[in-house]
């Protein structure tokens, strides 16, 4: 015991959407890597399919840290049992917009919306709540979305 104050590392929650658009898993792993390199502790929250895609792709947990059920994450934040410094919500459909609006309302985290898919421009127009949109037309090729993410560099903010 040195008596020196300890500082908690910054935290981030990645809220995954339906994994039907391939770039989500790739960009999630990339973002996790960048966050960890910046000293930010990432937690992933998704439905069973979205979480399993990540867990199977990273069996030794080189990238992944904590992975939790999305409904459980919502409950914990709502009941003030847990919160995060940053929150990244993956959006390619209306449900993603709904989850992002929810996170913006219930969490104290700075919310980033990661918007992709064929209809990304329509979805960007629906960001009428406090958030920083990061958007690109990306379905199979993650590079346009990676580029948009790198330009914002939310791990450095």
């Amino acid at each position: 015991m040195t008596g020196e104050p300890t500082t908690q590392p910054a935290t981030a929650l990645l809220v995954l959407g339906c994994p039907q658009v391939p770039v989500q898993t790739s960009i999630a792993l990339y973002l996790i890597n960048r966050l960890k390199k910046a000293g930010i502790v990432p937690t992933v929250a998704g439905n069973k399919a979205a979480n399993t895609l990540l867990v199977v792709a990273d069996p030794d947990r080189h990238y992944l840290g904590e992975v939790m059920d999305l409904d459980r994450a919502i409950v914990m934040i709502t009941e003030n049992k847990r919160d995060f410094d940053r929150c990244f919500v993956f959006i390619h459909n209306d449900a993603g917009v709904t989850y992002a609006g929810t996170m913006s309302a219930i969490s104290k985290a700075k919310v980033y919306t990661i918007i992709y898919g064929e209809h990304y421009e329509d979805l960007v127009k629906q960001m009428d709540f406090p958030c920083t949109p990061i958007a690109a037309k990306a379905v199979h090729n993650p590079l346009p979305l990676k580029k948009a993410l790198d330009e914002v560099a939310p791990w450095a903010a």
Binding site: Q20, N47, D94, A95, T98, G101, T102
Partner: peptide
């Protein structure tokens, strides 16, 4: 969950409310 404000309907003894799932809207 939802974009605020969330409307909850009442019709007699019935409660009408939204339920969102990532893959099903």
């Amino acid at each position: 969950i939802g974009l605020p404000p969330i409307a909850i309907g009442l019709d007699g003894d019935f409660v009408i409310f939204p339920f969102t799932k990532p893959c099903h809207g």
